[in-house]
Amino acid sequence: MNRLYEKYIKTESLPTLFCPGCGNGIIQYAAIEAFERLGIAEDIACVSGIGCSSWIPCYYKLDVMHTMHGRAIAFAEGLKLARPEKKIVVFTGDGDCVAIGGNHLVHAAARNIDLTVIMVNNYIYGMTGGQKSPTTPKGARTKTSPFGCIDQPIDSCKLVTSLGASYVARWTTAHPVQLEKAIADGISHKGFSFIEVLSQCPVQAGKNVYGEKEPSKIMEGYKKGTYIYKPQAGALTGDIPAPQDGKIPIGLLHYDPDASEYLQRVEERLKAEGVR
């Protein structure tokens, strides 16, 4: 077994419930690498909702809250407000975060509250057996879009950027090194950090959504179907880049280290009003 697993994972709970080749395990490992690199595991708590990706933190030897469908961010906000000095990492999926939890995502991003949200986007509801999600591409045939998905997929990175999230990155499971760095940076950043990870669900989405069902080929597809955004100096505070030649931009898409964070604003107001 991997030595970091032995340090950070409740090995008695293994194997994980993820299907063979699921991207969640890769993200699980990238996050523990980030915790290891930061060296502050005792100051980190994880919160997750419902869905396959929300099982990621349940195996960690950390304080973990496995909560209700869509509400992870709301739970995390309460926890953060109670313990402002700690770092809260939210693991969520595309359905959990953007569909049922959309309202909490919208408001947490607008508050720019210091949370790190890792959204695993596999374009499908995997746990329930392969139904369309808010990010399912147009035309994809799923269990609940048998004639092809007709809804415009939601670009969650664009959504949170437009609202005021101050660290927005997108990576894929085929970029584990960059993903680990993004998670570490997101945790270090004081503000709402949103990291979308394009992941694979070889079992429930497979050919219908990615055109491939072999995990390694889906990941190969992610490498080919994306381009790494290289901004010009100072260009990270604006809108996020658009797809080019049908390729999705990945990388650090938006970063505003000076954006005022929610808890800082609260403290400032309380000081200004003489309450504290």
């Binding site: 077994m1 991997n2 030595r3 970091l4 697993y5 994972i9 293994l14 194997p15 994980t16 993820f18 063979p20 080749g21 699921c22 991207g23 969640n24 395990g25 890769i26 699980q28 490992y29 990238a30 690498e33 499971t173 584990p176 090194v177 680990e180 995990p215 990941m219």
Partner: peptide, 13 residues
């Protein structure tokens, strides 16, 4: 270490 990072089950060391 790409194998360690990309193994979804922490099987490789």
């Amino acid at each position: 270490r790409m194998c360690e990072r990309l193994c979804p089950d922490g099987a490789i060391d």
